[in-house]
Simulated assay, not measured.
Amino acid sequence: MASRPRIAKSQYSSPYSASDMVAMAGVAPRLAARCMRSTHACAATSSGSISDRDNRLGKRITVWGAAFKPETDDIRDSPALAVAQALHNLGATVTVTDPKALDNARKLHPELDYVEDPIAAVDDADLVLHLTEWPQFSHIDPKRLATRTNSPKVIDARGTLNTDQWRDAGWMTRALGRR
Rank of each mutant, 00 (worst) to 15 (best):
D168L: 03
R4Q: 10
R174A: 14
R144S: 13
K100G: 02
K59E: 09
A44C: 04
F137N: 07
G177A: 08
I61F: 05
E111K: 12
V94D: 11
P15E: 05
K69D: 02
A23I: 04
N150S: 15
L102E: 05
P70E: 03
S151M: 07
F137P: 01
M172Y: 03
N150D: 10
S78I: 11
H130T: 00
K100I: 00
L108Q: 13
W171E: 11
M172I: 12
V122I: 08
V22H: 08
R76N: 02
A8I: 01
N89F: 05
D52N: 15
D141H: 05
S46W: 06
G170V: 04
K107D: 12
T62F: 06
P15S: 11
K153V: 11
G91E: 01
M1L: 12
S17H: 03
G58N: 07
L31P: 00
T132M: 02
T149K: 03
A32H: 06
A67Y: 01
A8R: 09
A86Y: 06
I155M: 14
D117W: 03
P110N: 05
D98L: 01
S13R: 11
V22I: 14
D168M: 06
N104C: 02
A43N: 11
G26H: 08
A120E: 15
P79H: 10
A18R: 14
A157D: 06
N89Y: 01
R178F: 03
W64V: 05
A146S: 13
N162G: 00
E111M: 14
T147H: 14
A105H: 02
R56Q: 06
M36A: 14
A125Y: 09
T45D: 13
T147I: 04
G48V: 08
P15T: 07
H40E: 10
D77Q: 15
L112I: 07
Q165V: 12
I50T: 07
A44R: 10
A32C: 06
P135E: 08
V63D: 01
D117F: 03
Y114T: 08
G58I: 03
